[in-house]
Design a protein around this nucleic acid. Structure first.
Lengths: 250, 250
DNA sequence: CGTTCCCTTGAGTAGTTTCAATACTTGTGG
DNA sequence: CCACAAGTATTGAAACTACTCAAGGGAACG
């Protein structure tokens, strides 16, 4: 699915919906999108509370969802290429959070008018899109689990394991790790600790031979060990394993 | 909407979808459900990983979603009457978590076959249901925010504020608080701390005049103060405020 | 009226934050 | 090519928050 017939939606189809979509649906879908545009690091792609009439596919790069608060900003999720980042704006109309580019990001928009067409005419594909927004919710739940059950070290390991796995699902992982334009502050924020503490935690992970994170590059010599450290089991990503989609969504 | 024409779905329609639904849609919807059944405390209503062909409305009582893990169980969300608890099982087919009755709970089931009928024939109502599952995701995000930004005392305050507000949306709150069959252990789990620490935190909240929680009954003399303590702003519940649905979903 | 479940308290330890200061990296202009 | 600035990463020490182990108290139920 990731050939040049699907420059915008290729990774989305590859990563999340391998077995669930027909070629006809995929072609209809690809045609809906405007050409991709590039935005620099830190661009607020979607602003909380704004009435939106389109949704955006992350084609290249990374983005985070951020809830602003008196006490600062909290990253509540991260997006990798192939994520239909704010599809949930289609039913919700206004988002409860900002979406911010993490490093330079290429995104492609589709208007809700066009989405409505395919959704009303292709009930099966509509279900696929719904599924995709619920996968985000499943990831949210896992993050809540991670925050409740693990301490800083485990949280960082879990986060690395998740991003690595999600990048692998869209063909962007390396054998021994991955790159993402994350700073220690970001990881600290995501794990609910301070940057200073995260710095020490990352040192421990490095010295313990679990994960070596340095300026955006994460390398882990032993994936199983990383998973054990973060109690990571990939099932909740619905890609493979116990919860995987088998055959058709209907 | 909460009259006796809608014994099963009344609170769902009242709480989450006030302005978004026609009477005709509501009547169609109500008719799909089997009669409600009661289950005792602790019943696992939906089991992780099982292929499910129905979804359930929480008519009376409470329930929690729980992710089991080597290290124990983590509550990742709570449900109040009127929550279409596992509607997300319709697109997902298998859930990544258990749903467990918290106290005695009355629930009504609807098969996915029947749901598919109304969804394929009533695109507007389909959107309403989609919306409803995304509201859960918004609540998940707020929980992630709460875990990342607040310490135990704020987390407890935020949790109380949220449950109070959600109960108010379905007409089940009291003027100065609410009742839910929660134990201190549950609140501790939800807030990601130990029961012992939560016990001390609850004492502090009580002595500080913020919230008096005792055996399932939460009373707060000053709602604003509780909200400030938990940095709670109800917008993310999409009921009223900045993000509220205005008029039609389309 | 005792049993069970739930809540409460104390003391010691581990994990995390805060404040303050120091290095390293990267990009820019001289 | 070097100097400088800005951003990012690192370290130390003290204070605080939360956890663990261990024991005692209170309410509710049969």
């Amino acid at each position: 699915m990731n050939d040049n017939r699907f420059p915008v939606t290729g990774r989305f189809l590859q990563g999340r919906l391998r077995h669930a979509i027909t070629t006809r649906e995929a072609q209809l879908f690809e045609k809906l999108f405007d050409p991709a545009e590039e935005f620099p690091d830190g661009t607020v792609l979607i602003k909380r509370g704004n009435l939106v009439n389109h949704s955006t596919m992350l084609v290249e790069g990374f983005a985070v969802r951020v809830i602003e608060d008196d006490g600062g900003a909290q990253i509540v999720s991260i997006h990798v290429p192939g994520d239909f980042m704010d599809l949930h704006a289609f039913p919700l109309k206004r988002l409860d959070h900002n979406i911010v580019a993490l490093g330079p990001a290429r995104v492609a928009a589709v208007t809700h008018d066009k989405l409505r067409l395919i959704i009303d005419q292709e009930p099966h594909f509509a279900r696929v899109l719904w599924f995709s927004t619920l996968l985000d919710a499943a990831i949210h739940r896992e993050w809540i689990m991670k925050q409740g059950q693990l301490r800083a070290e485990g949280r960082a390991a879990h986060f690395f394991a998740e991003v690595w796995e999600r990048l692998a699902m869209v063909g962007l992982a390396e054998d021994d790790g991955f790159f993402a334009p994350l700073k220690q502050v970001d990881i600290a924020n995501i794990c609910g600790t301070t940057a200073i503490h995260m710095n020490r935690v990352l040192r421990d992970l490095r010295e313990g031979g679990v994960a070596d994170f340095r300026r955006g590059r994460m390398r882990a010599p032993d994936k199983k060990r990383l998973h054990r450290h973060g109690r990571f089991k990939r099932d909740y990503l619905y890609g493979e394993g116990e919860l995987a989609l088998t055959g058709d969504l209907d």
